[in-house]
Amino acid sequence: MLRVETLATELIGPVSLTVGAGDCAAITGPSGSGKSLLLRAIADLDPNTGHVRLGQQERDQMPAWQWRQRVAMVPAETGWWADRVRDHFDPAHDPLPMLEALDLAPALDWEVSRLSTGERQRLGLVRALCCAPQAVLLDEPTAALDPAATERVEALIRDVIARGVPAIIVTHDPAQAERLNARRYRMDKGRLTPDPGK
């Protein structure tokens, strides 16, 4: 269970939100409303106040890097720091099953510079998910994908959630929230409210 209590930064909040094990929360809202900032704050990537807990573990009780290994955030635009795709993957975990599920099995040998936007997005997702995080924060995980690829990515996300991992997903697509069987929230001017749309 991922529990967020009165989380606030200079630009958003206070936000409270609880996502149970195996549950999914989908956040929609206009551009600039602070959806991505909320995910960054939960991942502790921006200075913030408030409490975040994963199960019984308080975020501020553990080093931030340890928290981020457990609560994985995948930003809308993924970052890369080496030339080859392979060098971005933790050798302790095998990404091949997930890459195969997304039809990207040969991608490990590719150069980052020749990846398309959609390939970057999917590889960035696998890079984080294959490390077996205990909660996931996904920022528009299918924004650059065609319908077929979107379907595969959503199936992968459903698999992860089905393992009991709480997920928060930022999306522009109400139908996606439906397909992921997610509870819907709406972000507006830095405040989060349950979305009566569902």
């Binding site: 990537l45 931030a64 933790d90 960035g124 490390c131």
Partner: peptide, 8 residues
Amino acid sequence: VEARLLLG
């Protein structure tokens, strides 16, 4: 850099 931070 932030990608590496996010990966722990």
